[in-house]
Design a binder for these strands. Structure first.
Length: 579
RNA sequence: GGUGCGGUAGUUCAGCUGGUUAGAAUGCCGGCCUGUCACGCCGGAGGUCGAGGGUUCGAGUCCCUUCCGCACCGCCA
């Protein structure tokens, strides 16, 4: 037996016991005649003490036997801080090179270095907590969905490329020269086929692949909680997964979330928050003030389609320098605003704005109040095309929320966004795109517009779709699907996908729908993001054991990498990369 | 594809308008230390300043090219 106990479990009550522990040497502190060693495993750290210096180095793997004794000087910061183990025998199981960075709560290593030695970084407590949370959440999901009658069914990874949407990762087929599998961007079509097959409650915690550029919250391979249900309406789906989220929060974090989870239409989200994934932990809503400011001779406003404002609480004391800095901030290409108009609504009730020469103090005050400002607030105004300006105000709102400390990661404000437009018109391509995906059904009451040929009708069709949003992050989304072949071909028509094209890309599902497809719908959550948000982080990398870097590379195993000519030939591949 | 920031000791960083032998902290090695837990004290080793080119009497510092990392925009139905 390598060990009788872990390094995290011994307490004062264990004093007197003879134990054997095994683990990694976190640190050895030599004090002349005696040496303290911190021994670490994933359960904790236990202090060892000896009068002989065993000569062990950091990260050596050792096994020791000794007696648990009460410490002379206790450490209240450690769970095991009341005891130590008096070493009787040391057995070095494996020596170790000095690690390139410290294996501690806050490592001294940079991100690149830690990525290269991911197996060392994973020894650190924050990473171990992150993966433990991920495990806990996965267990909660499986338990809940199992209780609700869902079956976990695996779907294939080697599938067919469907060039709508994200770029596919492709895999060459050796047995079928010149053809390629694609890795799934999601198991979307398979889960719908499972509904046709009668598995009326399906789920899968499943890897998905998208060959697009990475972000802090985006990896080329990521994990979805993928779900689908038959004989349901939107309400059933929302209730089922609201229950799942509630249970996850309660059991993994001990947090009670809002009941019921509030719902907001996509149009309200855009109008009030300038985002389809609003952070509702704080107010500071966007207010349109066009009617109040137009026609007073300020040409910038007069020529704008939309003028909107937010009220930054308590910021009336901002200096000219701070406001200039904020103006520069919104003018950066990432935001893209033309400028920023401000109103200081001073605590004495007076107002001061950057457009005072165009408006009376009464008018300025009216605008401030329309923006929801109280005395002491700073009103920030932007103008331009409606949706674009709202989006910019939304970005500014989030930034001000950050600056004012309104975005506490330990506060959780979930939200359903509903009533999305079904279709989005692309001026560039002069065609409609599915806002969600081409299997999303229109709301039943909007079906007459869906079959209309007028662009205005099609634009106002709402989808039977919904997104789950938490603290300004989209964690998941789904829809009620089209289950009739006729409506599906109408959708392909609207999207300008030819019969031949639809047959080539989606023939299997159109065909399946001819054989008795039940009404169905579902959704998928981004599991990595769920984990990160539950853990209070914005980056998902710490919640993935072996993530990729910004360039999609795994610097530890050095992938992707070249393959030799034999492999290339076998797969009928020719390189066009210049050496 | 684009924007910004960064690359200097094992590690994290400082290094001013170009000017002696490139520094600090930490880690590492050695010595002292019996209650440490960020132990303390003394000493030591440790550098292709990401790479290549250019300007200059002289480049870590300025210019060009390039590679790498992070964040963001585009992209992600």
């Amino acid at each position: 037996m390598y060990r009788t106990n872990t390094c995290g479990e011994l307490r004062l009550a264990d004093a007197g016991k003879k134990v054997t522990l095994a683990g990694w040497v976190q640190k050895a502190r030599k004090l002349g005649g005696m040496t303290f060693i911190d021994l670490r495993d994933r359960y904790g750290i236990t202090q060892l003490v000896t009068e002989d210096d065993p000569g062990v180095g950091r990260e050596w793997v050792i096994q020791i036997t000794g007696e648990v004794v009460e410490r002379q000087s206790k450490n209240p910061k450690m769970p095991t801080g009341d005891i130590e183990v008096k070493i009787e025998k040391v057995n070095v199981l494996n020596k170790a090179q000095t690690p390139p960075f410290t294996i501690e709560e806050n490592s001294d290593g940079g991100e690149d270095l830690r990525a290269k030695y991911r197996y060392l970084d994973l020894r650190r407590a924050p990473l171990q907590r992150a993966l433990a949370l991920r495990h806990r959440l996965a267990q909660e999901i499986r338990t809940y969905l199992d209780q609700q009658g869902f079956m976990e069914i695996e779907t294939p990874y080697l599938i067919k490329s469907t060039p709508e949407g994200a770029r596919d990762f492709v895999v060459p087929s050796r047995m079928n020269p010149g053809t390629f599998y694609a890795l799934p961007q999601s198991p979307q079509t398979f889960k719908q086929l499972l509904m046709v097959a009668g598995y009326d409650r399906y789920f899968q915690i499943v890897r998905c692949f998208r060959d697009e550029d990475l972000r802090a919250d985006r990896q080329p391979e990521f994990t979805q909680i993928d779900c689908e249900m038959s004989f349901v309406e939107q309400e059933d789906v929302l209730n089922t997964f609201e229950g799942m989220m509630r249970q996850m929060f309660k059991n993994a974090l001990g947090v009670e979330i809002a009941n019921p989870i509030p719902r907001m239409s996509w149009y309200d989200a855009m109008d009030k928050y300038g985002s389809d994934k609003p952070d509702i932990r704080f107010g500071m809503e966007i207010h349109e003030v066009s009617e109040l400011v137009k026609g007073c001779g300020f040409s910038v406003f007069d020529g704008s389609e939309y003028i909107g404002a937010i009220a930054a609480t308590g910021c009336a004391e901002y200096t000219r320098k701070q406001i200039d800095e904020l103006t520069e901030w919104v003018k950066r290409p990432q935001v893209g605003a033309k400028g920023l108009v401000y109103i200081k609504y001073n605590s004495d009730g007076s107002v001061k704005s950057s457009v005072d020469k165009f408006y009376t103090p009464e008018q300025v005050k009216a605008v401030a109040e329309a923006a929801g400002a109280k005395e002491g607030d700073l009103v920030l105004i932007m103008c331009g095309p409606k949706r674009k300006t709202q989006t910019q105000l939304g970005v500014l709102r989030i930034e001000m929320g950050n600056r004012l400390g309104y975005r506490d990661p330990s506060v959780f404000a979930p939200l359903w966004i509903v009533d999305f437009p079904l279709l989005e018109w692309s001026e560039e391509d002069q065609r409609f795109y599915a806002m969600h995906h081409p299997f999303t059904a229109p709301k039943p009451e909007h079906e007459q517009w869906f079959y209309s040929d007028r662009k205005e009708d099609l634009e106002r069709v709402c989808a039977n779709a919904y997104d789950f949003v938490l603290n300004g992050t989209e964690l998941g989304g789904g829809s009620i699907r089209i289950h009739e072949a006729q409506m599906q071909s109408r959708m392909f028509d609207v999207l300008g996908i030819s019969k031949e094209d639809a047959e080539y890309k989606f023939g299997f599902i159109i065909n399946a729908f001819k054989f008795g497809a039940p009404p169905h719908g579902g959704l998928a959550f981004g599991f990595d993001r769920v984990c990160a948000l539950f853990g209070g982080q914005e980056t998902i990398r710490d919640y993935i054991a072996f993530p990729k870097n910004n360039q999609g590379r795994d610097v530890m195993i050095d992938s992707p990498s070249k393959i030799d000519q034999v492999q290339m030939d076998e797969l009928f591949l020719a390189s066009t990369v210049k050496e």
